[in-house]
Design a protein around this nucleic acid. Structure first.
Lengths: 204, 204
DNA sequence: TCAAATTTTTACCATTTGGTAAAGTCACGA
DNA sequence: TCGTGACTTTACCAAATGGTAAAAATTTGA
């Protein structure tokens, strides 16, 4: 009986698949799906194009595999938002995790952004099946906190949108920020600014 | 003596150039520069590909023309930020203008986002020459307001980043928001949420 | 060690893409 | 109305691109 997720047998399999996915992340996040080429991915990975296609069935499969892996990583900080914790501190912790993620994984952030900008042709099903229920659950939890008077009355959905946009901005618009901030490092001041902003907004 | 900006002579010239630029905005904002094709632009514009190339010298020229026109529109709301006005109201007005712009011109917002995500290969010079001085000027004006005690102490640069990201998010991530919010219209609640957030942050 | 299985390379191919040459069509002023 | 210049179409190309077949090289396991 064939497995739906076939195990990667050899050492060399896993090594090369990782090489390819890392190269593909470079190329897809910079050029988008349409602008990326198999040649560019192969060159970046240090493999030949036919060799690439020995490990993946095609350009689309590489892209989908990347997005699929990314989805888990991307949802993780929100999963960790604990409805039993202190409301303000939980949300500030979430902001912090999202910001760290933007700084540590800018390519992943840009890949995600590019896919959504295009209208999410590949991701839409997973947005509906994975993100939407989690989003609804967390919005409800935030609303409970508000009803209990432990959080200032904010629009839960748009609060989450704000957090996503302000944190991901540092990855997605890095090129613009580099021009405007020149030498100075963005991270510490960004972290301070976001904590100040969301603490004021959320404290009842 | 040839003009640097040759005048568009006939009625049909201007009409077709507009048709092409509008079609190109559709295609480039969805597929990015690399993913866009002249065929797709021509089809969208209702012209033949050679006919396209009668009006523009090539794919790159169309793209650069679009970005160039966009730059003015994009900077405009920030230009209007009046250092003689009331600080909080001026900044809230700016937020409002940026949000309206995202809602009215989502394709332009996505085109801009796509270019920056790629590392701004075409825009970087104009970011340095046009945006950077304006940004520095407005940051300085905000700092003056803070020093005068008319605005809460915030990081001017990161305040502007927040405003850009939270407003543009509604255009750039429209596909995701559509999934999460389903039927309900985002605009009025977004406007309320952003006003609440920035009023609290900025009021001294 | 040596055959079987896995991995890599070489040599291709069909389609798509950005772009051009040149012939044809149209609009307008003399 | 007719010639001239502006516009459009037809018929192409060369390069790039996603992808394949099959031979060659390498690794693996008995």
């Amino acid at each position: 009986m064939p497995q739906t997720t076939p195990k990667k047998k050899s050492r060399i399999q896993t090594r090369n698949r990782h090489l390819i996915l890392d190269a593909a992340l470079d190329v897809f996040s910079r050029d988008g799906f349409g602008g990326a080429t198999l040649d560019a991915i192969a060159r970046t990975a240090g493999l030949s194009k036919p060799n690439l296609l020995y490990y993946f069935d095609g350009k689309t499969e590489i892209y989908v595999t990347l997005l699929s892996q990314l989805m888990e990583t991307w949802l993780d900080p929100l999963v960790e938002l604990d409805s039993n914790g202190d409301p303000v501190e939980e949300l500030l912790g979430y902001v912090r995790r999202k910001l760290d993620m933007s700084m540590d994984l800018p390519r992943e952030s840009r890949l995600f952004a590019g896919e959504i900008i295009k209208g999410a042709p590949q991701m839409k099903p997973r947005l509906e099946s994975d993100l939407k229920p989690l989003f609804d659950e967390k919005c409800a939890a935030i609303q409970v906190w508000i009803n209990e008077g432990r959080l200032a009355p904010v629009d839960p959905a748009h609060l989450l949108f704000s957090i996503w946009s302000t944190t991901q901005h540092y990855a997605d618009f890095e090129a613009q920020i580099a021009v405007l901030l020149e030498g100075s490092a963005a991270t510490p001041r960004a972290a301070r600014h976001l904590e100040q902003m969301y603490r004021q907004l959320l404290t009842p």
